[in-house]
Design a protein around this nucleic acid. Structure first.
Length: 426
RNA sequence: GGAGAAGUACCCAAGCGGUUGAAGGGGCUCCCCUGGAAAGGGAGUAGGUCGUGAAUAGCGGCGCGAGGGUUCAAAUCCCUCCUUCUCCGCCA
């Protein structure tokens, strides 16, 4: 969400940005919202004037009443009645215009960072850097659910009966490995100075619309029937929402938090063969990191954040690469985003395991997250978020990369304390 | 979930239809007094946001938990919601 003043003064930048994101159908919105905004301000001016008159006259009526001059008071009442209809008309117009403006402003995408590659969809995302040697072993790597089943580690049939497709029972050592990864990731982030947090798993609609676009909301969020509550799609939602309507003293920045939560997603749309098992599911668990910082520091934090994820995967010996999201694939609220992808020796390609985003001031504007500087200046904060690790999906990468020729799975040294000292699953 | 009570500026708190843009304290800031301090005395202390504007100057709109409504006029009356507290119920 952009500042309407910025849009008013820089319509060409906004239009070019829309073109860069291949959303040409939104181009007319820019001129439309400028016209609506002009009309809205004109309406407000006239209405404010009438309201000022009314305030003055009301005061005089009050004075007359105090002196018991009823007739004079009645005379003055008529003065207000004379324009009250016009005022009501203007007020209705004001609300209507405000709503329209807001609706359009919510749909106009955030200005992307100049470094974002221009491209129309995910096929034009750009590989940035590889970390670790992507190895393909000389034995066959089975599909991840087959590996899990070998250890009685997953029961998808039961999950389908109980909750439907897109859910899972993790069992035994696989379930334990899942928890171990979460615990390890939590401590990994705490060691890097982040504050651990367990947030609400449901949030109100005003927070939902503050953290994401309508398109995302519709495709992702589960609503609780009969209540103004949604299941979170990621703890980013409740963690950024934590700061709704706040004025943070500048010296309390940056806020660096790492949160654990289950995540619930509708995952609307058709998915391919490679998305079976626990790759794309309605419920998963995730360790997340978020940062609230000064605007000038958000690019620095962006680099720091994705690096954390890379380091975590590397500490588990999983090869990864970073993939920059091109303009057309970038969600409307985001300034810049890169995915961390893990190596799949079975598919002989990388697949997404994390996503790091700089939202600029878009979420802060919607949620009113502001900062008060030492000099008294007030400004919107910048918000960023990134996956530390989402275990069901990362287990795919873990199992594939740590499967041994004898069919056992090696437990990385850093995970062993969380696995009761086990060195392998067999 | 049921029954009550309450939400006013940094904090406490008065007001319950009209010079209240909000009494009174406390705190904070400045001044007087003092060799310095304490005590005492005096003064100041809505912030936010929208419009207008070159303006962090004026002027105007909105603001007493949030949103609606009644009225010429609402912190004050009515409705809905949120939050907090007390009691009951239920429950890891």
């Amino acid at each position: 969400m952009l500042d309407i003043k910025f849009l008013r003064e820089n319509p060409d930048i906004v239009k070019q940005n829309i073109k860069n994101k291949f959303q040409d159908n939104k181009l007319p919105m820019v001129d439309e919202v400028i016209a609506l905004d002009a009309e809205s301000r004109k309406t407000q001016q006239e209405a404010d004037g009438l309201r000022a008159d009314r305030n003055k006259i009301s005061k005089q009526i009050g004075a007359f009443m105090a002196q018991g001059k009823k007739e004079e008071a009645e005379e003055f009442k008529k003065k207000v009645t004379a324009f009250s209809e016009r005022l009501a008309e203007l007020e209705a117009k004001e609300t209507q215009l405000q709503e329209k403006i807001r609706e359009i402003m919510m749909a106009i995408p955030n200005i992307i960072d100049p470094s974002v590659p221009i491209g129309k969809d995910d096929s034009e995302n750009v590989e940035l850097q590889k970390f670790g040697e992507p190895v393909v072993p000389d034995f066959e790597i089975p599909y991840h659910t087959d590996i899990m089943e070998r250890f009685n580690g997953i029961d998808l049939d039961a999950a389908r009966r109980v909750a439907g497709n897109g859910f899972y029972y993790l069992m035994g050592d696989i379930a334990r490995l899942h928890s171990a990864v979460i615990s390890y990731a939590r401590d990994f982030m705490i060691d890097r100075g982040f504050t651990y947090c367990v947030p609400p798993f449901m949030i109100r609609s005003d927070v939902v619309t503050g953290v994401m676009s309508f398109a995302e909301m519709d495709a992702m969020m589960y609503k609780i029937e009969g209540e103004d509550l949604y299941l979170i799609g990621t703890s980013e939602h409740s963690m950024i929402g934590k700061f709704i309507d706040t004025m943070l003293p500048e010296d309390q920045l940056p806020q660096t938090l790492t949160s654990y939560s289950p995540c619930f997603r509708k995952e609307k749309g058709a998915h391919g063969l490679e998305e079976r098992g626990v790759y794309r599911i309605h419920q998963f668990e995730k360790q997340e990191m978020i940062v609230i910082c000064k605007p000038e520091e958000s690019p620095m934090w962006f680099e720091t954040l994705w690096r954390n994820t890379v380091d975590l995967f590397r500490s588990l010996d999983i090869p990864v690469r970073t993939l920059e999201c091109c303009s057309g694939d970038l969600a409307d609220l985001k300034v810049k985003s890169i995915d961390v992808e893990a190596w799949s020796p079975r598919q002989k390609k990388y697949f997404e395991v994390g996503s790091c985003s700089n939202l600029g001031d878009a979420q802060a504007r919607r949620l009113r997250i502001r900062v008060k500087g030492a000099d008294g200046q007030k400004y919107l904060a910048h918000t960023l978020n990134n996956t530390v690790v989402a275990p069901p999906r990362m287990l795919i990468a873990y199992l594939e990369n740590n499967l041994q020729a004898d069919g056992s799975v090696r437990i990385a040294e850093c995970l062993q304390p969380y696995m009761g000292g086990k060195t392998k699953i067999q």
